[in-house]
């Protein structure tokens, strides 16, 4: 008689479908397919796709590359901790280091130009969260993740950490400038 009793008809799998169910299953299936096709569609026609490029590396090797970029393109320093601000040429490789509990260095980019931004952590997981643009990417230790980013609007942006990384997680905030 009901869902808590065995089905009254032993061959329940031969019961005909009711129209309300059949129709809904059809509609729902079509909708699921549309949602499926949206993802490949966006890879072809959309502009916001997370890069697949990532390389295994070590914190030391990564840090070395980051330091080279800072040495070459540093334009000034900010805050008491003298965090370098780098202004790399368009199209170049830029390295952003995530570590307990800071981002290093500060990047200064130009609107309308593309950059290959590398992201990697030196220790635990961190979360790259660019505000108020709202681009959020997981940052792993040992995986150098390369995204090609094209800032569109000039302004001062913030990078905050949004993957919990210990007791000072909430202090991990930095800047990104777009000229």
């Amino acid at each position: 008689m009901s869902a808590i009793l065995p089905p009254p008809e032993r061959v329940w799998w031969k019961q005909p479908l009711d129209r309300v169910e059949g129709l809904w299953i059809g509609i729902a299936l079509v909708w699921c397919l549309i949602m499926f096709f949206m993802m490949p569609y966006w890879h072809v026609y959309g502009k916001q796709n997370l890069a697949n490029e990532a390389w295994r590396t070590t914190p030391e090797a990564y840090m070395k590359k980051a330091e080279e970029v800072v040495a070459k393109y540093k334009v000034r320093e900010e805050t008491d901790q003298k965090i370098p601000v780098v202004h790399p040429p368009a199209g170049s490789d830029v390295y952003l280091v995530a570590r307990l509990w800071s981002w290093w260095p500060i990047l200064e980019l130009e609107a309308g130009k593309s950059y290959r931004i590398h992201l990697m952590s030196m220790d635990w997981l961190h979360g790259f969260s660019l505000q108020p643009e709202n681009i959020n990417v997981e940052v792993h230790p040992g995986y150098d993740h390369v995204m090609t980013v094209t800032p569109t609007r000039a302004g001062s942006y913030s990078i905050i950490c949004n993957e919990y990384c210990g007791i000072n997680h909430h202090t991990m905030a930095s800047r990104l400038y777009v000229k």
Partner: peptide, 10 residues
């Protein structure tokens, strides 16, 4: 896949 970028870890 792509929409996740907007809210991941928020």
């Amino acid at each position: 896949e792509q929409l996740n970028l907007l809210i991941h870890n928020t």
